[in-house]
Design a binder for these strands. Structure first.
Lengths: 246, 246
DNA sequence: CGTCGTATTGAATGGGTTCAAGTAGCGTGG
DNA sequence: CCACGCTACTTGAACCCATTCAATACGACG
């Protein structure tokens, strides 16, 4: 109910973190019909091979895209917080080439493709705004590739924490030094391409260096500058400016 | 000259490999003004931080997106063949978050953003078509992540060869078993997240198994089924169907 | 208060890197 | 026509980050 009412607001907020909306466009986004639904941790929302007719807007909790390989190996492709629409690409790619699942218990809002297309038709600039969101997604994938290809485990993990904190900050989900991060070490490893064991060790190293704590599903950044340096984090790739010329 | 004349045709062909165009739309694409330009191997086309006013359509040769880290390390993010538009995202992301360079000597066609926007305005379905191209890009990044995160060097390399052959096939750049692949082992390593030394060894292993040859900048696939199996390659993620419902 | 998922620790193994050296191929100029 | 020099490629050996296997501790929840 209140989820449903807040849903459009969440989406508008996400869009406005990278794109300037007119009052009218903002209102149109807020008014889009959303069907709220609850998922438990590790439950699939959409599966590889599906042909979705909805997009899934995350309303609370943590979701992920992933692909599993033959022998139980799983790679998490991206993590998604409230306001994200992890399967926005399904608007123009009929078949899912990966799955979408809840990492923690989540609430999600389903929006039919039909409604999204309608929104874009009536407000063409929203087409650009949504296209831009998918492009930022793409940019985040590129950064993930850099990490997996060139960085060691510590820098990868530090980078992920910087990214998540920064993204949550942009949509108002953080307080000064901390943000929710309801993820197990095993899943974190699946995201970083590490074993659960090594994930644990690296996490301890980050704690030992006094950079972060991760406790009770909450990430606290004790030393932002130290973390940023360790991660070689540069937020440019998140494109949080609003696309204006410099 | 003839490059310029063929440029629109190349782009139309690429679009039509994943999207059904009307004769009118096709004609509009072919007629878009393109300024052809030559780059030598390893020359930058666009750099991280730039704010491009063109998109770059590859007309011949091999191009790549890449990012370099502090100490000379470089990660190639994607490889691009004739028909690809590797910086299409610059339409809606003002700042480049990575660089674009020639891998081999190439010819590229520059198309101003203005012309692309014009094209989309006059033919709205082309907006969807180009959006779709950027989404396929994104899907390829996801697959790259799977490789870097979960697969060993041999499967990664085999997968890359399957992908490139399949993509070139879709735009008519292959013959029965072979396709151009003008890349050095060093650059190949930068793409696969491997050292040049290990790239060499893995390449030898693929040859020893009778799966491929890579000679004089030409990739020949001796045993497609063997290569596909070794790579665990499933072309779904390339979305080469044209988006029709099943 | 037991139990199952999650976190932690230790030790052995391995894929890939790095360092170092040597070879092959090719364009250029003497 | 051959020497030179450059780049790409190839090979061997030592090392290291991360994995795997195996066991143990914690902690939330019924």
């Amino acid at each position: 109910m209140s989820d449903s009412a807040n849903a459009g607001e969440r989406l508008a907020r996400r869009i406005e973190s990278t794109f300037r909306l007119t009052a009218e466009e903002r209102q149109a986004v807020r008014a889009v019909p959303v069907a709220a639904r609850v998922y438990e941790a590790h439950q699939d929302i959409v599966r590889e091979g599906d042909r979705p007719v909805h997009c899934c807007l995350v309303l609370s909790g943590l979701a992920c895209r992933y692909k599993s390989l033959d022998e139980g190996a799983r790679q998490i492709l991206s993590l998604h917080v409230a306001g994200d629409v992890p399967d926005l690409q399904s608007l123009h790619l009929g078949v899912m080439d990966h799955s979408l699942a809840a990492v923690s218990p989540i609430t999600a809002g389903l929006i039919t493709h039909e409604h999204v297309h309608g929104l874009i038709e009536r407000h063409p600039r929203l087409g650009a705004a949504l296209w831009r969101l998918t492009l930022i997604d793409s940019s985040i994938f590129r950064q993930w590739i850099i990490g997996l290809g060139q960085k060691d485990a510590l820098r990868r993990m530090a980078h992920l924490f910087c990214e998540l904190f920064t993204r949550m900050q942009a949509v108002g989900l953080t307080d000064a030094r901390a943000c929710p991060l309801p993820i197990t070490q095993g899943d974190l490893g699946d995201a970083l391409g590490l074993s659960a064991v090594h994930t644990n060790r690296v996490l301890q190293e980050l704690r030992a260096r006094g950079l972060i704590t991760l406790d009770r599903r909450r990430l606290t950044i004790l030393d932002w500058d130290g973390l940023r340096t360790a991660a070689e984090f540069d937020p440019l790739y998140l494109h949080q400016d609003r696309g204006e010329a410099s």
